[in-house]
Design a protein around this nucleic acid. Structure first.
Lengths: 341, 341
DNA sequence: CTGAAAGCGCTTACAG
DNA sequence: CTGAAAGCGCTTACAG
C-alpha cells in the first residue's frame, strides 16, 4: 500500500485522542476548548508538522489562508521592495501570498476579465495600479477586503497606504529654491500606456504649485518615457535649449540617473553647472551621490499587509491601523545639488 | 456588495439533464462523453457562467493549479528578475504563483521545518538556494516536482537552470588578460551567513584557474560582504597595498559598483589607472559604464518555469528525467576596462 | 467542553 | 456512454 503522503486533521485528532471537531476548533484558536485539550492538540499538530488543507477549509466555509498581491511588475525596485514588505508581514502570520503580475496590457486585461483570484483568496493588495471604473468593479467582484498601496489614494476612501506625492515634489523643489535656484525645469515621466498614473500627476502638480508660490510662472517641463533612457533624453532636450536651467527636478530617481548620465557625457559638471534632484531614494541614488526625496517603500508594503490582515481579524491587539495611511517623505541632500553659480 | 456566485456543477447538470459526473467529464475535456451530451453541457455551463470551484476540484484529487516559488529575498535585482521570468510563464498557462521569501535565517528555518507549502502546490521552483542535506530532505517531503534555478547545480542531477559561473569568471578574467593586464586582483563576495553559496565558490575557482593557466600564480583576493559597501571596502583594501593591481575582477556588478565608488572618491581614474570588471549585467552596470559578463536572468526564470510546468503532466515526482539547462554568459565591454598604461 | 454528523463542490472508481 | 455513490479534509450547527 502506498503510504499516505500528507497528515490530515484525523491524524492529529487520533494522536491527541480527541475528535476532529476539537482539533479544528483548537487550531483556529476558537473558544470552547479546554486549555489542556488545546495544548495536547497543538503539540500533536506540531509533532506531525500538520498543515491545514486550504482546500478543505475553504470548501467548508473557512478562509483560504491566502492573499492575492497584484503588482504591475516585479522586476523593478519599487515594486519588489513593496512586495518584500508585504511578504515579511504575511510570513509572520503564516498567510500565503499569491503573486499576480500584470506586465503587459494583455495580461492586465486578462486578469480583470477572468479574475483568476476569484474564490482563491481571503483578501487582496493592489500595488500602484490606477484602475479604470470597469477594473474597479471587477475587483469588487472578488468580494474580499482589498487595500491599495503606493500610487495615489482613491477618491472613494478605500483602504490605502502611500505617500503624498505632491508634498514630495514640494520638498524637492523647495530645496532647489532655498539654495537659490530660480531657473528650474522638470523632467516629467509618463507611462507608455495611456493610463493616468496619479503619482505622475501629483508630482507635476506639486512642482507647478511650488514654483507658482515662489512667483516663478511657466517653468519648463519636458515629458519623457518612464525609464533611465527617458531621463537621458529629457536632459538632452533641456540642454538643447538656448538657455538651459540651472536646476532640474526629476520625476523619480531613475529619471534623474538618466539625466546625470547625459550631463556626464556632455561634460557638464554636477552640481556646479546644473543641480539635479530626484524622488524615491532608489539604492542607485546613493551610489550616484544623487540628492533626492526618500520615501519608505518597504514600510508601505508592511503597513498595507498589516491593514489587510487586520481586516481579516488577524490583526494584533491594538486593532487595525487607520484605513488611510500617508507616510512621510524626507529630503536627502547629497552631492548633486548646490547653489547656482 | 456583489451577489455571491452560487452556480455549481449541480446547476449545470440539472440544466443539461445529465449527472454531475458527466458534467465533470465534459468540462475537463475527458473522453467518454458523447458529442451531443458534451455540447449540451458546455452550452449550459456557458449560459450559467459556471466556474469550477478550485477548492472542490483539488479536494477530489485534481491539481491545485499552484506552484510554489522559493526565493531568498525579492528586493534584489537578481531575484526579482528571475521571479518576473517565472511569473511570465505561469501567467500564460493560468498557473497561480505562491511566493515564499526566506530573508532571514529564522524565516528559512521556519520554512523548512513547517513546510508551509505542503499540500498547497503542484510543483516548486527553488531560486538560488544552497541547501543543506536536511533542507533537501524536507523539500523532498513536499512530494512535488521541483526545479532549481540560479546558484549552482546540485550534484545529484536534479532539474536545474543556470549559468556556468566558472566560465563567467573565466570570460571576465580572460578579457583582462587579453588586453594586457598581469596584475589582476579579485574582490570576492561572501554571504554573511556561513552558507556555502556555490556561485561564489565557482567564480573564485574560475578566477584562480584562469590566472594559473596564464602563468600568474597566487593572485591577490580580498573577501568582503556581498553588497555595494562590501565592494567599496574591498577596493579600499586593495588600494592600501604597497602596489595596487592594475585590474580588478569583481565577484558581481554590485561589488564592482562599490569598487568604482571607492576609486572615484580616491580620485583614481577608471580605466586609465585601474580597470574594473564585474559579472551579471545589472541595470546599474550600463549606467556606470561598467564592463561585465552578462547573464540572462529573466530567461533563467522563464526556462525554469517551463521545465517545472512540463514536469507536471508526468505523474509523480520521480517520473520526469532531470533536465539541466546551462545558459550562456556574454562579455559586455564598456568603459571601465582598458589596457594598462 | 466535546463529539457525531451533515454538508461544502467536486473527481473517480465502479456498475450498468 | 452514463449515473449513483464514495470519498477528498475540513467547518459548523446540533446534541449531549
Amino acid at each position: 500500500m502506498i503510504p499516505k503522503q500528507t497528515v490530515n486533521m484525523t491524524d492529529v485528532a487520533r494522536r491527541s485522542g480527541v475528535s476532529i471537531a476539537s482539533v479544528s476548533r483548537a487550531l483556529r484558536g476558537e473558544s470552547g476548548v479546554s486549555a489542556a485539550t488545546r495544548d495536547r492538540i497543538l503539540s500533536a499538530a506540531r509533532e506531525l508538522a500538520y498543515v491545514v488543507s486550504p482546500e478543505a477549509s475553504r470548501l467548508s466555509g473557512g478562509p483560504t489562508g491566502r492573499v492575492g498581491v497584484i503588482v504591475p511588475r516585479v522586476d523593478a525596485w519599487f515594486y519588489s521592495t513593496i512586495l518584500a514588505g508585504i511578504a515579511d508581514e504575511f510570513d509572520t502570520v503564516g498567510m500565503d501570498l499569491i503573486l499576480c503580475t500584470l506586465p503587459t496590457s494583455a495580461a492586465r486585461h486578462r486578469f480583470f476579465e477572468a479574475l483568476p483570484l476569484r474564490r482563491k483568496v481571503d483578501a487582496a493588495v493592489v500595488v500602484s495600479l490606477p484602475l479604470s471604473a470597469r477594473e474597479r468593479t471587477r475587483l469588487d467582484q472578488l468580494a474580499v477586503p482589498t487595500v491599495f498601496v503606493g500610487g495615489h489614494r482613491t477618491e472613494d476612501h478605500r483602504p490605502w497606504v502611500g505617500i503624498d506625492d505632491e508634498r514630495a515634489a514640494q520638498q524637492a523643489v523647495g530645496h532647489l529654491l532655498r539654495i537659490g535656484h530660480h531657473d528650474i525645469a522638470m523632467i516629467q515621466a509618463a507611462d507608455d500606456t495611456d493610463i493616468p498614473w496619479a503619482t505622475d500627476q501629483a508630482r507635476i502638480r506639486g512642482f507647478h504649485q511650488t514654483m507658482q508660490e515662489a512667483g516663478l510662472a511657466d517653468p519648463t517641463v519636458v515629458t519623457v518615457k518612464w525609464s533611465v533612457d527617458g531621463g537621458s533624453h529629457g536632459m538632452e532636450t533641456l540642454l538643447s535649449r538656448s538657455r538651459p536651467p540651472t536646476a532640474v527636478f526629476c520625476h523619480s530617481d531613475e529619471i534623474a540617473l538618466g539625466a546625470l548620465r547625459t550631463l556626464r557625457r556632455s561634460g557638464i559638471s554636477v552640481p556646479q553647472q546644473v543641480s539635479v534632484i530626484g524622488v524615491d531614494d532608489h539604492p542607485a541614488a546613493e551610489l550616484s551621490d544623487l540628492t533626492t526625496v526618500a520615501q519608505p517603500v518597504r514600510e508601505q508594503g508592511r503597513i498595507a499587509a498589516r491593514v489587510v490582515l487586520g481586516g481579516l481579524g488577524d490583526g494584533d491587539a491594538s486593532g487595525p491601523p487607520a484605513s488611510v495611511t500617508t507616510l512621510p517623505t524626507r529630503l536627502v541632500v547629497r552631492g548633486s545639488t548646490a547653489p547656482p553659480r
